Amino acid sequence: MPAPTVRFLLVLDADSTLIRNEVIELLADEAGRSAEVTAATEAAMRGDVDFASSLRSRVSALAGVPVTAFARVLARVEPTPGARELIAAVHERGGRVGVVSGGFHEILDTVAPQLGVDIWRANRLTTRDDTLVGSVDGAIVDAEAKAAALREWAAEAAVPLTRTIAVGDGANDLRMMAVAALGLAFNAKPTVRAQADLIIDRVDLREVIPLLP
């Protein structure tokens, strides 16, 4: 029996889009370095600094955090209002949902399937002796990697780019939003709002449902 045809692809950012939190800030709490990491995250999301360099710097602040902290962080993660409803609506219409994140697989691998996400990609943290080393394992998921993921997932599902939607809040989402047929700024920084096709101010992902094909 042939695989069902995928009608369209919706790709979301994770932190501050699919979920309300910035996971790296929650992890920084565990290291007692929340204030400095929060400030650095804000700068990266505004586009003031290079994302990859900023992420390496912020992850270095996590050195020494035990991997047992992931369970505590997961307990604090809050899905954005409307996340489940949006994902269900995409599936009802024959679409697929992807999440591509500058955050971490260690959290997204639990959160994404719980919410019904079909495919996801994020960074991985290097560990040694059940402790974070303070570095990213492998290539960093930056703006270009997000755009590449959207293209790749669309090709795999035989979905033309004209039937893709990207949703994000930070400067590192702009390239995937430009690749997609519709780029939505959700609860977004001014740089993103200025370049998006549409702006969604209300922090409720159900606002995206009327825009689905």
Rank of each mutant, 00 (worst) to 15 (best):
E152A: 14
R93L: 13
E42A: 15
P213S: 05
I165V: 15
V133P: 11
T110P: 06
L86C: 04
P81L: 00
R93E: 09
D173H: 08
A40E: 13
A181M: 08
H105N: 15
E207D: 14
V77G: 10
I200W: 01
A3I: 05
T5G: 00
A31T: 07
L184Y: 03
K189N: 06
S34Q: 15
E144A: 14
T5W: 00
R124H: 14
M1T: 11
T191W: 00
E85V: 02
E85K: 08
A178H: 14
L212D: 12
M1Q: 12
I199N: 12
P213G: 06
D129M: 01
H91V: 04
V192N: 11
K146E: 03
R96A: 14
G82K: 03
T38F: 00
A185M: 08
D204C: 11
A196L: 10
I209E: 12
D197V: 01
P210T: 08
L12C: 13
V192Q: 11
D129N: 15
E152N: 10
V133I: 15
A180Y: 01
N187L: 01
A154F: 03
F104A: 05
S135G: 12
G32N: 07
V77D: 12
T5C: 02
T5L: 14
F51D: 01
P79Q: 03
R193V: 10
L55C: 07
A188W: 07
V117D: 13
A89T: 02
T191I: 15
A143S: 13
L125K: 09
L10T: 08
A63V: 05
A145C: 04
D197H: 12
R121E: 12
N21W: 02
D50R: 09
V133H: 08
